[in-house]
Design a protein around this nucleic acid. Sequence first.
DNA 1: TAAGCTGGTCACAAAAAAGTGACTACTGTT
DNA 2: AACAGTAGTCACTTTTTTGTGACCAGCTTA
Lengths: 120, 120
Amino acid sequence: MAKFNFNLDTLPPSEIREEICSLTITQNVLQGRWKPLLIWYISLQPQRFGELTRLLPGISKGILAKQLKELEDDGLIQKEIFDELPFKVEYTLTDLGEQLLPVIAVMQDWGKKYIDSRQK
Amino acid sequence: MAKFNFNLDTLPPSEIREEICSLTITQNVLQGRWKPLLIWYISLQPQRFGELTRLLPGISKGILAKQLKELEDDGLIQKEIFDELPFKVEYTLTDLGEQLLPVIAVMQDWGKKYIDSRQK
DNA sequence: TAAGCTGGTCACAAAAAAGTGACTACTGTT
DNA sequence: AACAGTAGTCACTTTTTTGTGACCAGCTTA
């Protein structure tokens, strides 16, 4: 069953529907405990699978592989396999992934405001 | 057990830690299937409980009450009870909640880019 | 030869999130 | 008197997400 996230009985105007859809899409793409951090780390420099397990404490290989796969399927990151021995893999942001960086940046800005507001 | 989301054995520099923390805070505050939409609807105009159940198709009263409560506890929205009869309740954004609107806006911008990228 | 590195997959268990339906208590309408 | 609307709460079930530990195959180092 499709999730429209708006009421089909009293259909909102199309510009409202568009805002709801675009917001929900971004939310879904970022849904996952490690995804925002993964995108941010990969934006700093291309990252390898093993390096990400070291950067993120407590992440399991299973969920790391799964969330990387989902980010790849959503077109945010790409995977490059180097056939050197021992072989290695590098994850980098796609253009679409780069375009997501403003979202990460404003999230960080707001997080700092939140911390400030709690320290008063 | 606290979730630092960074590696305590090889502690990253403090400016990196700060970015990780602020990003994770914002992520946690927005975590919940309906929260971004709730914030957006409330930013359009003060909203009542019943109106929100009508705007959001399929949301249950239980989860709506829970997510509103969490947003209130996090200081993003405030609840005003009017003692008229029949009594009514209105939810509005706090200052901190208003400051979150840029996050919602860039999420919507990116969602539109994502839709465009998929239509090619 | 054994252990450690590379980057994973898989089945299962645990935890977290979300949904369901009944119930509350008050007022206004029919 | 019965039903609708106000805004919820509560116990329970279902669904989704995350974590756990074993396993794989090829290579390097001690």
